[in-house]
């Protein structure tokens, strides 16, 4: 299908983009790489009356280390993240997760922040941001605020973004000494949305596991060390707590089993590569 008609604003500066969004209010949407949003337009699941293209805004194209995190502007494409020279050394969890995001042909245009704004419960970038306890920087014409990842994702494809507000950047905390990371995913086909994806962080403060694809939002939980002997029981509790959904791809029971198995694998990997 084809998108329903909309007005189109190609913003050259952040101020222009924010002006256009403020004017459009509830009917305005940001267009960045379009790899999640244009399918919604084509299927007419989204029918905004104004679309604001932000890819011409130079200020949003930055990718830089700031305050112990990698700050990625709203105009940075996923392929640009994969080419950031320090990705494997400083953000190993993202380095492991990025190859699972869509395909080469969509990572070439899709943006990091666009995937967060789309908030698909199976998507890898929201999962990684939750696991790393990162932050999202939001902006309106009049104000800006920073929201913790756990407060940003409110439900299936629902976020804390308000009318007239846009994501300016996201901060992924960099690897700290003593941390290790693990990532596991099962999908029907490589590049498809995850049936279940698990991201583990093992550090001096303990072990955290984030699970995507099961509940409406990626969910983070502290878990015991496998050496304690309590991990299986804790993973089982976690799996049941997620209220797994039934869909074309998997039954709730299968999803719970994947949480138990992939969760354990991801945690063991995180412990192995703890530095």
């Amino acid at each position: 299908m084809k998108p329903a008609p909309f007005d189109f604003v190609r913003a050259a500066t952040l101020a222009e983009a924010l002006d256009a969004l403020a004017q459009a209010g509830e009917d305005g949407r940001v267009l960045a790489g379009g790899q999640s949003f244009v399918p919604m337009l084509n299927m007419r699941l989204a029918r905004p009356s104004v679309l604001v293209d932000i890819m011409g805004v130079a200020d949003l194209r930055g990718i830089e280390v700031a305050k112990g995190a990698l700050r990625i502007g709203a105009g940075v494409r996923q392929v640009e993240l994969t080419r950031w020279a320090d990705l494997t050394a400083r953000l190993p969890l993202l380095a492991a997760a990025v190859p699972y995001i869509g395909h080469v042909q969509t990572r070439s245009r899709g943006t990091v922040c666009g995937s967060l704004a789309h908030a698909d419960p199976s998507a890898e970038l929201p999962l990684a941001l939750i696991a790393l306890e990162g932050e999202i920087h939001l902006r309106t014409k009049k104000a800006h605020r920073t929201v913790a990842a756990r407060d940003f994702f409110l439900g299936m494809m629902a976020t804390a973004l308000r009318p007239g507000e846009m994501i300016e950047a996201v901060s992924f905390p960099l690897r700290r000494a003593g941390q290790g990371f693990g990532f596991r995913e099962v999908a029907r086909r490589h590049g498809d949305y995850a049936v279940v994806a698990c991201a583990a962080v093992a550090g001096p403060q303990g072990i955290r596991l984030a699970v995507g694809g099961v509940g409406d939002v990626p969910t983070l939980r502290e878990l015991p060390d496998p050496a304690s002997g309590d991990l299986n029981e804790a993973l089982n509790d976690f799996a049941w707590s997620l209220d797994a959904r039934e869909d074309l791809h998997a039954t709730p029971r299968y999803r719970r089993e994947l949480v138990r198995r992939l969760g354990r694998d991801a945690i063991e990997e995180a412990l192995r590569c703890r530095s």
């Binding site: 379009g34 790899q35 244009v38 084509n42 299927m43 392929v79 395909h103 042909q105 969509t106 245009r109």
Partner: peptide, 25 residues
């Protein structure tokens, strides 16, 4: 809607789905 890949073209040196790109982009 970006799944089948039949419309893949090259845009500024990168492969991309032409059905997920607005002409104005």
């Amino acid at each position: 809607h970006g799944v089948c890949g039949a419309c893949t073209v090259e845009i500024d040196g990168e492969p991309a789905r032409a059905c997920l790109v607005l002409a104005g982009q």
